[in-house]
Design a protein around this nucleic acid. Structure first.
Lengths: 205, 205
DNA sequence: AAAATACTTGACTGATCAGTCTACATAGAT
DNA sequence: ATCTATGTAGACTGATCAGTCAAGTATTTT
C-alpha cells in the first residue's frame, strides 16, 4: 500500500472540536476542512457526507475516551471511588477545554444527540450506542456498591440510570449556564442520589 | 391603532413547532414563514433576526405553559403530589405531540439551549431565565415536602436541583432514544431521588 | 377626504451551503 | 521504468441561507 495519510483522523478531530464547541448545524464542511488543512476533495474522498463524518467523529471521540473510562471504572477501584474519580476527571477535562475556548461545553453526546435526533438517523444511532456503553460503567459500579453493602438498591440498573440521568442533566445545564460550579458540587449530589449509607474514606484528593 | 394582525403569534408558534421538532440550526426563516403563511417582509417587520424570533418564541412557549405550571404546583396541592401530577402532565403532553410528529421531542429548552449556548447570547439568556423559573417550582415543592416531614433534606435547594437535573437528563435521553418509556417510570425515580420516607397515598390515578 | 399607522408583498442580494468532478501528485509494487 | 493504489487540489454547481427594500394595501384617526 502506498502513502498513508493521517487526513482522515485530522478531519475527524477537527469535526469533533467544531461540533462540540458550536453545534452540528452550525459546523460547515468548509470550516472542518479549513481546520483540518484539507480541501473539499479530500473530505469526500474519506467520507461520503457530513453526517457520516459526524458519526465517525463521535465514535472516534468515544474510542479515545474508552481507555480512560476503563481505568477509572476498573473493578480494582472501590465502586464509589470510581464515581468520585470520574466526576473529578470530567471536571478537570471541561475546565481545561474552557481555557482553550472560553466555554463550558458539557457532554458532546447529549448536545449533539438532542440536536440531531429527529433529523439524522446515522448520528442518532451512533450516539445512542455510545450512551449505552457509558451507562454500563455506572451499572457495574452500582452493582458492586450494592454487593459491598455501600448502597441499598433493589434495582441497581434503575439506580444507575437515575444517576446517569442526573449527571447528563447537570452537564446540559452546565453548558447552557456556562458554569462549571455545577460540576464541582456534583460528587455530593451523586452520593445522595445513590443513597450512600455513610461516606467512605477516599484515597484520592 | 389600525388593523391588528395575529401574524406575530403565528410566526412565533410556527417557529416554536419547527425548532422543537427539528432544531434551531435546521429551521430556516423561509420554513417558518411558509408554515405561518407569511412572507419574508412580514417576518422582518415583526422581528429583526431569526435569533430574536427564537428568543420570543421560547419566551412565548413558556408563558403559555406558565398557567398550567401554576396550577400543578399550586401550594394547595400536597407537595409530592405536585411532582406526580407534573410528570403525568409532561408524559401526556409528549405522547400527544408524538401522535402528530412521530417523535418524542423532550424539553425544547434543554435541546435548543444545548445547541445554541455558545453561539447565541440572546437565546441562551432567555433559556437560562426560563429554566430558573421552572426550577423554582421544584424548590418550593421540596421545601413544602421537607416542612411536612415527607422528605429529609438539609438543603432543599440542592435537593430540588438534583431532581431537576435528573428530570432534564431523562428528557434529553427520551428525545435521543425516541422513547417515552423513560418518562413512564420517572415518577418512581423522582421519589427515590427525593428520598421520600414512605410513599404517600395519592388521589390521582 | 386626507393623513397616518400598521401591516403585506415578493423580488432581490450576496454569502454560504453540501456535494461533484476532473486533473494531478506521490508512493510502493513489479 | 512504469503501473496502480492512495490520496490531493480546487474550481464548479445549484440550492438554500439570512436579511433588505421599495412599493403596495388596509384600517383608523383627524
Amino acid at each position: 500500500m502506498p502513502r498513508v495519510s493521517d487526513m482522515k483522523e485530522r478531519l475527524m478531530d477537527a469535526a469533533m472540536d467544531l461540533i462540540w464547541e458550536n453545534s452540528y448545524g452550525a459546523t460547515s464542511v468548509d470550516a472542518i476542512c479549513e481546520r483540518a488543512g484539507a480541501k473539499k476533495g479530500s473530505f469526500y474522498y474519506f467520507f461520503k457526507s457530513k453526517s457520516e463524518l459526524a458519526a465517525a467523529a463521535l465514535e472516534g471521540c468515544w474510542n479515545k475516551k474508552k481507555a480512560e473510562m476503563d481505568s477509572i471504572f476498573s473493578p480494582t477501584v472501590p465502586p464509589l471511588e470510581r464515581f468520585d474519580r470520574y466526576f473529578d476527571f470530567v471536571h478537570d477535562r471541561l475546565a481545561e477545554v474552557q481555557q482553550k475556548c472560553g466555554s463550558i461545553l458539557g457532554c458532546p453526546f447529549i448536545s449533539v444527540g438532542s440536536e440531531v435526533s429527529t433529523q439524522d438517523q446515522i448520528v442518532r444511532e451512533t450516539i445512542d450506542r455510545i450512551m449505552d456503553r457509558k451507562l454500563n460503567y455506572f451499572v457495574s459500579a452500582v452493582r458492586d456498591a450494592v454487593a459491598e453493602g455501600l448502597v441499598d438498591a433493589p434495582d441497581p440498573v434503575a439506580k444507575a440510570r437515575a444517576l446517569f440521568s442526573c449527571y447528563q442533566g447537570m452537564m446540559a445545564q452546565a453548558r447552557i449556564q456556562n458554569d462549571i460550579e455545577l460540576l464541582r458540587g456534583f460528587k455530593g449530589v451523586a452520593m445522595e442520589v445513590l443513597g450512600v449509607k455513610r461516606a467512605p474514606a477516599l484515597s484520592s484528593s
